[in-house]
Design a protein around this nucleic acid. Structure first.
Lengths: 190, 190
DNA sequence: GTACATATACCGTCCAAACGGTACAGTAAA
DNA sequence: TTTACTGTACCGTTTGGACGGTATATGTAC
């Protein structure tokens, strides 16, 4: 009797659909155009339907950010596990994980960051926490903290430029650039 | 005769005031809170006054972006000129110019990027053009294009994290990190 | 200098549309 | 019947923007 409802929620995955629709919309039209009605239209249901799953816009945005974290974190861990024993495994995992195309992840996923930042910058707190924890892992790998921070920043810079379409390199070559970044990360020594 | 008393109004450039108020607001409250009324309040005039100077919100945002470019471009050129004859002068100038604190430039200036992206990503076109032109200069300096792109991305990654407050390094050390980045840029060889 | 005309820079008010959110009736399945 | 959800109708507020008015500066003619 206790655990029944779980399966019901799984049968219809409206929550996922809504979150994905929101990402797509933010990525295509801009974070400012992300209204509840527009999300509903994009997800193929009514405004009431969206508000049933996410009782307020803030909760929808929080949901977007949480989902982004939950999507990316295991991806990072996976790469990190595969690099066990090798130097700078966490940093290298962060770099590898930011190549979304390689893992068939919607490239608009990290747009949640900009959408959330536009609505209320304080909602980014969970992401800050996640990044700090990850940074501790990077440090624990024993490396030059400054170089590591710079390489991480490079990966994120590429990601932001990819999101905004302001990159100076053609999009197709981002994977290759990340490969180069990975080489650098491998070579860092304390 | 006395022609100066009210001349303050004429002399004081409201356009600048409005643009600066908009940057401050976007930086403090988030890009989504950037409404014409709020900008007017922050700039100390009425909504009508803002709309007189910028006939539509899109034009205001375009104004913010243009002003950002006009503020930063000469700064880059200045650094670039100072590095004449040295390797990778353009890339190094880009890195140095992204340290706003050093030049007493309001750190909220690049928030225009996020504000514009939130309203309509296509408005970023002028920035894309500016960056492509700058990239050509970097290439003309004769360097490893991929490494150069990565170092530039690192500088921008630090900037974005600074804007969003999601950086993993304390803000005070950004200057130092940029110095380290400058060292790397100096060492790149073809 | 006075009178009048025009331009500039801005204010205050108003409005239709869009917004986030509520209320509730309905449905389909378990 | 309960649970999980959809869809419509609606409300109060906010939004971008239009518009007419106003104080001041400037130009021109007397």
């Amino acid at each position: 009797m206790v655990e029944v409802t779980r399966t019901d929620r799984r049968t219809s995955n409206s929550r996922q659909d809504i979150l994905e629709a929101a990402q797509r919309l933010a990525s295509r039209e801009g974070a400012g155009k992300l209204t509840i009605e527009a999300v509903a239209r994009e997800a193929g249901l009514s405004k009431g339907g969206v508000l049933y799953n996410f009782p307020s816009k803030d909760l929808l945005l929080k949901g977007m950010l949480d989902w982004m974290i939950e999507t990316i974190a295991p991806l990072i861990d996976e790469h990190r596990d595969a690099l066990e024993g090798q130097p700078n495994r966490t940093l290298r995992a962060l770099i590898k994980a930011s190549d979304f195309k390689a893992k068939n992840i919607d490239p608009s996923v990290p747009m949640a960051i900009l959408a959330v930042a536009a609505e209320d910058p304080e909602l980014l707190a969970p992401m800050r926490a996640e990044m700090q924890a990850r940074w501790q892992q990077v440090l624990d790998d024993g490396t030059d903290p400054e170089l590591a921070a710079l390489l991480w920043a490079a990966a994120d810079g590429l990601m932001f430029h990819c999101m905004l379409g302001t990159g100076v390199f053609p999009e197709e070559r981002r994977t290759h650039l990340l490969g180069r970044l990975d080489e650098l990360a491998t070579q860092i020594c304390k």
